[in-house]
Nucleic acid binder design. Structure first.
Lengths: 123, 123
DNA sequence: GGTTTGGTCAACCATTTGGTTGAATATGCG
DNA sequence: CGCATATTCAACCAAATGGTTGACCAAACC
């Protein structure tokens, strides 16, 4: 008999967070937003600009990202700034690492990889 | 102005895979199943046993996990065996690592990632 | 004060998701 | 053969998701 208790605990404990984090990450628009915020904090309007959908739609996406803890929003004046909160990915990352022996990745190489491959991605 | 091109490329390229993988991981039942398979391969019926839902429901979950590449299913006789495929987590894991400088650096994992060349949707 | 700008809210809509049940299809067993 | 076992299929359902539009509110500008 397999030790399912451990398995169930494993997936059960941090379920709430993982649900919302993974669900947030499952949408390409939201992943793109996160990637944009990697560069710098942005106002909601500026986040919305490159997308071909309404501001309201983006606003909803930002709510979802906020609830998942993946970004934070701070209102200064009438503009609301969005800031990446990469720590929110940690639990999910750890959970995933439980499955593979693939260790963390070389960030510098990854950056270089992005720079090099970039130009082909024009649309 | 921020270099959004790169950000958009970043989130755009492996979108198809990441969509299905993250969506698959967003459900606690499916995460539990993956954790169970960490222990050993299992028949569909045995996977379903600890859950309080129909076999058909579990069968659907297994289809979703299979389409995400997170498990494989092989039919031997009349029983279909489910096997964890942790490699499918790699792209998602790498994507996430792009955000947090969580951990020290390991070049090997990244090299392997590059060599694998992302699956070109077999359908 | 009146008008633009930044952003959300509310109502609505189509599609997807996660579940059910009952019938159907294999495969194995005596 | 006839029956039990393993699994999927099909139809259905409720709820969640991702988008729209138009009204709304708050801050900034002249």
């Amino acid at each position: 008999m397999v030790d399912q208790t451990r398995a169930l605990w494993f997936s059960g404990t941090m379920s709430n967070d993982l649900d919302t984090v993974f669900a947030a990450l499952a949408d390409p628009t939201r992943r793109t937003i996160l990637a944009m915020l990697l560069e710098d904090d942005m106002a909601v309007t500026d986040v919305a600009e490159p997308f071909e959908m309404s501001l309201a739609a983006i606003s909803k996406h930002l709510v979802i990202l906020t609830k998942a803890g993946l970004i934070s929003q701070e209102k200064r004046g009438r503009v609301k700034w969005c800031k990446l909160e990469p720590d929110a990915l940690r639990a999910a990352s750890v959970w995933m690492q439980g499955f593979g022996q693939f260790e963390p990745v070389n960030l510098d190489a990854f950056e270089r990889f992005l720079e090099v491959e970039l130009p082909t991605a024009e649309e």
